[in-house]
Amino acid sequence: MVDNITMFIALILSIAGLALVGTMAILCFTKAFSIVFLGEPRSEKAKEVKEDTTVSFIVPMSILALFTLLIGILPQYVFAFMLKPVSVFVGEINCEALQFIPLMQVVSLTAFVIIAAVAVLFAVKYVFKNKNEKYCTWGCGYNKPTSRMQYSASSYASPFITMLTPLFKKVVDIKKPKTIFPKDAHFEMHMEDVEEAYFLKPFIKSVEKFFAKFEKIQNGNIQQYITYGLVFLALALVCVVILG
């Protein structure tokens, strides 16, 4: 049981915070993964990318990925492994921390069950031996998917970010098509962090403005640089003479 009300409020807020972080992680990683790896290539350059299959590139990454995966599916061993080094710093490990080991065993078991069951189900799909027809993505009449029709990263995050409106600034650059035969039109939208839009950018601009005044001094004119040297030498000479 929780001892006092402050503790209770703190716990409730932190568990809600953790849940929020978890869901934001889903949002973030589905966005990152799908924009980079899924769908149609998003640019001409991306279309021509050849994956690097050099062993020395892949093996180190695979080792890191493997360990990350192991922490996820065998947390109880990782936890037990960490206990000793942690106890060096904090003394004896609190028993309350140890009560989570059974929970981790369940997590581990669950992970293996998921992997096994997915494998079985995936195999079953092939046992059914239904025919698979290949066709382009359903496009509501535009049956030629291009990267321009795909959802972009900004649009993907937009509903969530709009909820946090005070923290972000929506920057819309729009040029509407005019006349009967419009020559060009343009639409662009992206989100800017509030501190970037209202604090960092004005700050950087003012700094730039200040230092622009010194541009005259460093203007790439060699004669002028030689003059600086001469003036410095003259000053140095005066200093030496006066200060003896």
């Binding site: 769908g39 993505t137 509501c140 795909q150 509903p159």
Partner: peptide, 16 residues
């Protein structure tokens, strides 16, 4: 998102 469809991307974005 894997289908590259704008509709499905929109659905995914809202669901998330």
């Amino acid at each position: 998102m894997d289908t590259g469809s704008s509709f499905e991307g929109m659905g995914a974005s809202r669901e998330a």
